[in-house]
């Protein structure tokens, strides 16, 4: 995979740019959210980890605040680590079971700052309160917390150094609906308070829609569609995005018998993707060319990128009517 990301933070908080995949550049304003959606194995996590330089891309460059993060010197790398945070899907396995909440939150402060113990404690308590926990939880071990509380601790850890960018990898997927709502509210609050930029990875399109300003749809390791959330949901261009939208169960019994296109087959292994368009074996709209040539991610209209040979001729508005009617 080629991964080019560019986060440019202008002096006057101009947009941060993300330049991704195949040299196309996307822009995400500071303090907003890019949602990354796709099914299992589509490469969402890989993308998130690459952006944070937790794994190395095979090729390409990633720019953050104008700096190429693949070529940072030691100080710059330290600065980069400080400026970014990550939250994983499974809070329990991402928290060290032998560390108390206090120690979990203290670690990044010890590594990245030279605050004294008193200052550290103050920051820890303040951050805990920000995520809806309190001093009472300081001395607990992760297993003494509920799933939602564990995720709050993971979020506290990710934001304790006041990062610019936080990658959230399925942060609500293992949680119940009522707890999901609490965590999503928390994330939105923290975002507006600290002007955080989020990369929000999820396979749940409804959640992605709720939290994101821009959405990137991935399939078998490739970005197939990227645009503003509104555009992706109302002016869907890629057949895969359409089939995702058709497949999500919509919580409205009146839409039970809506028209949908249902794709057959299963996602390919990312290690051995089909030739041509990776989606072609499952695509109801595939033509001969799709088997032969891989479509490029092209700007179909302003800020709307699509990787499909037929993007300019296919129109899904009719098919999407019911789903769009669900959204306010």
């Amino acid at each position: 995979m080629k991964k080019y990301f560019e986060f440019k933070k202008g002096i006057f908080s101009k947009p941060q740019y993300i330049r991704a995949v195949d040299g196309v550049s996307f822009s995400v304003n500071k303090g907003t959210t890019l949602g990354v959606v796709g099914e299992s194995g589509s490469g969402k996590t890989t993308l998130g980890l690459t952006i944070l330089r937790l794994i190395e891309p095979t090729s390409g460059i990633i720019l953050f605040n104008g700096r190429d993060i693949m070529h940072l010197n030691r100080d710059e790398l330290k600065w980069f680590r400080r400026s970014t945070g990550i939250v994983f899907q499974d809070p329990y396995s991402s928290l060290n079971p032998r560390m108390r909440v206090k120690e979990i939150l203290e670690r990044p402060l010890k590594i990245h700052t030279d605050y004294d113990e008193k200052t550290r404690s103050e920051i820890i308590v303040k951050t805990l309160e920000e995520v809806g926990l309190s001093e009472e939880h300081l001395m607990r071990y992760p297993h003494e917390l509920s799933g939602g509380q564990q995720q709050r601790v993971a979020i506290a850890r990710a934001i304790i150094l006041k990062p610019l960018l936080v990658v959230l990898d399925e942060p609500t997927s293992s949680l119940d609906v009522s707890v999901q709502a609490q965590i999503l509210n928390l994330l939105l609050d923290l975002q507006s308070k600290h002007e955080l930029t989020y990369i929000f990875i999820t396979h749940d399109l409804l959640t992605a829609r709720h939290i994101s300003d821009y959405i990137m749809v991935m399939y078998a390791g490739k970005v197939v569609e990227y645009s503003t959330t509104r555009e992706v949901f109302t002016n869907t261009k890629h057949p895969y995005t359409l089939s995702l939208l058709s497949s999500i169960p919509i919580p409205d019994p009146k839409l039970k018998s809506r028209r949908r296109i249902e794709i057959t087959g299963e996602p390919p292994s990312p290690l051995n993707p089909p030739k041509g368009c990776r989606f072609h074996p499952r695509c109801p709209y595939a033509i001969e060319m799709c088997k032969l040539k891989e479509p490029e991610l092209l700007e179909y209209s302003k800020e709307h990128f699509v990787a499909c040979h037929r993007a300019s001729e296919l129109d899904f508005t009719e098919l999407l009517k019911d789903i769009t009617s669900f959204f306010a």
Binding site: S178, V179, A181, N185, T207, H210, P251, F327
Partner: peptide, 18 residues
Amino acid sequence: CVIARRKSKSRLSQIPGA
């Protein structure tokens, strides 16, 4: 909690506690 996701970026109503 579920239906409010119709609206982008709105605060979801939440059930307090666990």
